[in-house]
Nucleic acid binder design. Structure first.
Lengths: 152, 152
DNA sequence: GCTATTTTGTTGCAATTGCAAATATTGCAA
DNA sequence: TTGCAATATTTGCAATTGCAACAAAATAGC
């Protein structure tokens, strides 16, 4: 077998290859959608998370995303400037903050959920509903080994 | 239903969410592996592609990856400097180049394939072989709507 | 044959990212 | 109680990225 064959076989049998490609496509689609809200992908993700789980610390958010602390910090800078979230004092520690969605932030929830739904529909357009559900299940299984779920 | 519920439901039902998270995890794992070869993720991807399909133009490579031209250009700069690929003249056009793997580049094929195999094993560790195959099939289906496959 | 347009690839510069150090606070242990 | 390690977050600076302009070559229209 030639090197080309080896490599081709490796690639076409590689989940990672397709996941990376899909992720890039998703980034593109999300960027399209988020332009209307003037949110970066990171800000969007954090805002969604904060609406879902109000009053988390930045470290808590980071853990959930596997997003580095400085990225959280800067994304929240932007969201705070735009009045979508606030950094409230943590009751038990003066160095941690509770990140809370403002009313303005929470008001975006339906729109943001719609964005996700649209992108998702686009992504799964080639799969039957049953197969799409199964796909989701596999994604969750694969990821669950590296993450927790639910609020705090 | 509260906004938190809406958002939570949206997220947990979103393929995109999990794909993005998985992609980030993969990036981390790949970075770990590629440190040994001193290759960026982009250089790795292009080198693999060039070994698989020798003598493509940069535009051809870019199309296959959905990678922007300047990223290709700079990644190949790095690979060329390190003697892993060359820019050969295109027979029919003086502005296009044929990107070819050198012997040194091709020599990395087994190692690079092994990297992919290891990362992939890690990724699918939670799935049975049958389910892993099915998962791969779904990824291909989902992506195929946006890509071509094979050489030239 | 001559100009306009498109294709192919590169590059300057500004924005973004990421590391590593700094800041501030907390807890622990001698 | 004091000093030392750990935690939570921010920030300076260097590396990377991405846009948009550029250059060069090929193609098309006149």
């Amino acid at each position: 077998m030639t090197d080309a064959d080896t490599v081709r076989q490796t690639r076409t049998a590689s989940h990672g290859w397709y996941i990376q490609r899909l992720a890039r496509q998703l980034d593109l689609w999300m960027a399209e959608e988020l332009a209307a809200f003037d949110l970066t992908h990171g800000q969007f993700a954090i805002l969604m998370m904060v609406i879902e789980c109000d009053g988390q610390t930045q470290a808590g958010i980071g853990q959930r995303f596997a997003m580095p602390p400085y990225a959280i910090s800067r994304a929240i800078d932007g969201l705070e400037t735009r009045g979508l979230v606030t950094r409230a004092p943590h009751p038990g520690s003066r160095r941690a903050h509770l990140v809370r969605a403002t009313d303005a932030g929470r008001a975006l929830a339906p729109d943001l959920a719609a964005v996700v739904a649209r992108v998702n529909a686009r992504l799964t357009a080639g799969l039957s509903p049953e197969r799409a559900t199964d796909f989701l299940d596999m994604l969750q299984t694969t990821l669950s080994r590296a993450t927790q779920d639910g609020c705090s």
